[in-house]
């Protein structure tokens, strides 16, 4: 059991990177960006292809990050410049990336067994792979949390937050909302692809199918994090995302252990998210009508 939970923590840390990416679009930009389903597999594909080709695994992971940023740029251009609704822009990129990923890998999946990965470097310090994943995952997650905490406090970061919160107000304050949306999508998809690259290296293979349902997993982690670990301030929110991603993996490990068939996993996740998202509706049924207070300046 302990081993299973350790596995859940290590996988959760890698998925936390993806969860933070989903948070940037879903909560900060107020867009449900489906291109992440393509960019997570793209990150895996780019990293696997390049590692098999003999590239340094860290460099290969960087290439994956960059590839994801390009995917985000494309979704952003489709949405802002070409005025395609956000949901559809994401779907278009996602579908296009499926073919792109097949082209990158040349086939549907690529094995990384006995290849040098980013974790090998840590393993050389005398650790088993599971521990190496946790150490490196934690390292990456903490650095990203630090960078994002700084970034969203800068002038540009504040402009992105304002764009997601109230685009009309943002434009009235001289913010180029289209560019902010594109920038947010670039950062988000870069992180998602980075997550894909790290996941592929930890499970020792990349699969063109691995993105399917990932947006729902990301959303589930975001919501679990917010509900269980709070959203008092931005730093707290970022940590909640990481803990949410880990908790999600633990829940999955538990239900699988309790005997749920693995094939039902996506159904289970979708139902969890549906229930979590509809909580406000149920709450409003239960709450008595609020008295409308008079507005006093």
């Amino acid at each position: 059991m302990g081993q299973i939970m350790l596995g859940a923590v290590s996988l959760g840390l890698l998925w936390a990177v993806m969860t933070i990416g989903v948070y940037i679009t879903y909560r900060i930009l107020n867009i449900a960006d489906l291109s992440v389903e393509g960019s997570i597999a793209m990150g895996a594909a780019l990293a696997a292809h390049n590692i098999v080709g003999g590239m340094n695994p860290f460099l290969a992971t960087g290439v994956a990050f960059f590839g994801g940023m390009v995917a985000g740029l494309i979704t952003g251009i489709l949405h802002t410049r070409l005025k395609i609704p956000a949901l559809l822009s994401g779907i278009l990129t996602m579908i296009a990336l499926y073919s792109v990923n097949l082209r990158i890998m040349g086939k549907a999946n690529l094995s990384l067994l006995r290849m040098d990965t980013v974790y090998s470097t840590v393993e050389q310090l005398g650790m088993v792979k599971n521990h190496a994943v946790i150490v490196l995952g934690l390292f990456v997650v903490l650095i990203l949390v630090g960078i994002l905490y700084w970034f969203f406090g800068t002038e540009i970061g504040c402009a992105i937050r304002a764009t997601g919160n109230n685009p009309q107000m943002a434009r009235a304050q001289g913010i180029n909302t289209d560019n902010m949306i594109i920038l947010g999508l670039i950062i988000s998809n870069g992180m998602v692809a980075l997550s894909g690259a790290l996941i592929a290296q930890s499970q020792s293979f990349a699969d063109v199918q691995m993105g399917i349902g990932s947006i729902v997993i990301g959303l589930a982690s975001v919501i679990i994090g917010e509900v269980l670990f709070g959203k008092r301030n931005f730093f707290n929110r970022l940590l909640s995302l990481v803990l949410g991603a880990i908790t999600y993996r633990m829940i999955i490990a538990l239900v699988l252990r309790m005997g749920m068939p693995a094939n039902d996993l996506k159904l289970f996740t979708a139902m969890t998210v549906a229930v979590a998202l509809s909580l406000p509706v149920f709450r409003s049924f239960l709450k008595p009508l609020k008295k409308s207070g008079k507005e006093v300046i």
Partner: peptide
Amino acid sequence: LAYRRGQFRSLRWG
């Protein structure tokens, strides 16, 4: 945000 209206926004603190 309003204080920076019409100005270039950079990576300085918001």
